[in-house]
């Protein structure tokens, strides 16, 4: 595990060259698929959450850009009456780390697919998955694993049971730990305890290929989640025939990371032996309506800082640069 001290990394020759090469390759990949670059300002003047790096500019409290998706959303809603349908970005974000070894300054490249509300979203989700499937090859990773999940698999049962706030957070935290026994503990005495524990066990029962979807049949919420199951099945049918060599596709029914933000399908990219995901994203249909625009959106972000670390600590995972 590479440790950065201080948390504002200086990149020396090899890492700097690698960053430039990867940014170019990924932005070229997005541009070739119609994604146009936007570059939101590094300084945000809107309200910013805990964890952002804030400072005073004269009398104004401002923050460094802490997240591209949110910065882009502000830019798009201020600037465009109708959404540009495909946008891409590259640059640094600054965020106080959850884990002590994480950097504050992080390099990211990503893309967002934005549509007016009501447009069919399934094709956009598959389009993003296909884009992400090409990323390991562009980065020179010898092999990778793409996890398909869906935030609604947890969100909808919780909503159906009327579980919100701290109790819902405790269930999500337990699922994040992949600990069905913690779900049972958290819901002790609640009328939904048995149902949600059985659901957690179903979600956690498999972590494998397309057959994983079958595990949902054992859930008490299988009927409620039929639409999500069909959506994931259709995505698998679309993606499996075009799977690049050295990329494995897995279904992760218990992916709850970012559940407060994501509303539907999620994507996560791993490399065998990597301790952190290398790219992540999904559908987040509540962000733009919250900013007063009836738009729906999905996207993903490639975490180049983690990849730079990995290239140093696990060079065996990468092809030799040509």
């Amino acid at each position: 595990m590479a440790v950065r001290t201080p948390h504002f990394p200086d990149l020396l020759f090899n890492s700097a060259a690698r960053l430039r090469r990867w940014e170019g390759a990924l932005m070229g990949h997005f541009a070739a698929h119609g994604y146009r670059e936007l570059h939101p300002s590094l300084v945000l003047r809107e309200t910013v959450p805990e964890g952002a790096l804030r400072f005073f500019d004269g009398d104004d409290l401002v923050a460094l850009r802490w997240d591209f998706t949110v910065a882009l959303a502000g830019l798009l809603t201020r600037t465009f009456p109708a959404p540009p349908d495909r946008v891409a970005y590259a640059g640094a974000v600054f965020r106080r780390p959850v884990q002590p070894w994480e950097a504050v300054e992080r390099f990211e490249v990503g893309c967002e697919r934005i549509q007016p509300e009501g447009e069919p979203a399934a094709e956009a989700d598959v389009e993003l998955a296909r884009l992400l499937m090409a990323v390991p090859g562009l980065l020179g990773l010898k092999s990778a694993i793409l996890h398909l999940g869906n935030a609604a698999l947890v969100r909808r049962p919780l909503e159906a049971e009327g579980l919100f706030g701290e109790l819902a957070d405790a269930v999500v935290a337990a699922l994040s730990r992949r600990a069905p026994h913690r779900v049972r503990e958290a819901l002790d005495g609640h009328p939904s305890a048995a149902r949600l524990t059985a659901h957690a066990e179903a979600l956690l029962s498999e972590l494998d290929g397309p057959g994983t979807l079958g595990a949902l049949a054992a859930s008490p919420y299988a009927t409620l989640l039929e639409e999500e199951m069909h959506h994931m099945d259709r995505a698998l049918q679309a993606l499996l025939p075009i799977l690049p060599p050295n990329l494995e596709l897995r279904v992760d029914l218990a992916d709850v990371a970012g559940l407060g933000f994501y509303t539907g399908p999620t994507l996560r990219l791993w490399a065998p032996g990597a301790q952190q995901e290398l790219a992540a994203g999904g559908r987040y249909d509540r962000l733009f309506p919250g900013l007063g625009r009836p738009w729906q959106a999905a996207g993903f972000c490639v975490r180049l800082s983690r990849l730079l670390d990995l290239a140093v600590t696990r060079p065996d995972l990468f092809e030799e640069p040509r």
Binding site: I145, H147, R178, A179, L207, D208, D252, R268, W270, A271, P272, G273, A274, Q275, Q276, E277
Partner: peptide
């Protein structure tokens, strides 16, 4: 006592860790 696993190892190499 709880059995714990590294998130990265478990999710990226389930065939090895499980």
């Amino acid at each position: 006592a709880r059995l714990v696993a590294a998130r990265g190892a478990y999710l990226s190499e389930p065939g090895r860790i499980r």
